[in-house]
Amino acid sequence: MAAPLSVEVEFGGGAELLFDGVKKHQVTLPGQEEPWDIRNLLVWIKKNLLKERPELFIQGDSVRPGILVLINDADWELLGELDYQLQDQDNVLFISTLHGG
C-alpha cells in the first residue's frame, strides 16, 4: 500500500493548452495498492487534469512522440521512462516540441 504522494506536474511548449493553459499543477496522488509510477501517473492525468483532445497528449500508454518528459530536471529516458517510481515532492515536466504546441 503506497502512501499518498504530493508531486508537481508542469506543462510547457504549448502542452499547457490542453490543460486550460495552466502550466503548474500541484497535485496529490491518492494512496493505492501498487506504487505510483509514470504509467499510472499518465492514466491519472488523463482522467483528472486533461481537458480536451487526449490523443494530442497520450498515445497508447505513453506520451505522444515529440513530447519530452523531465523528472526533477532529468531526462526520463535515464530513469526508466514509464517504470520510474514517483517519490514524494517529485517534479514532472512535460514539454511539447511539436509545431504549434
Binding site: 510547457g12 530536471d73 515536466l93
Partner: peptide
C-alpha cells in the same frame, strides 16, 4: 530549461 531561456508560446496556425 536548464538555462531558463525565456520563450513566448504563441498558438500557431495548426495548434490543436
Amino acid at each position: 530549461r536548464l538555462f531558463a531561456v525565456p520563450s513566448v508560446f504563441t498558438p500557431a496556425i495548426d495548434t490543436k
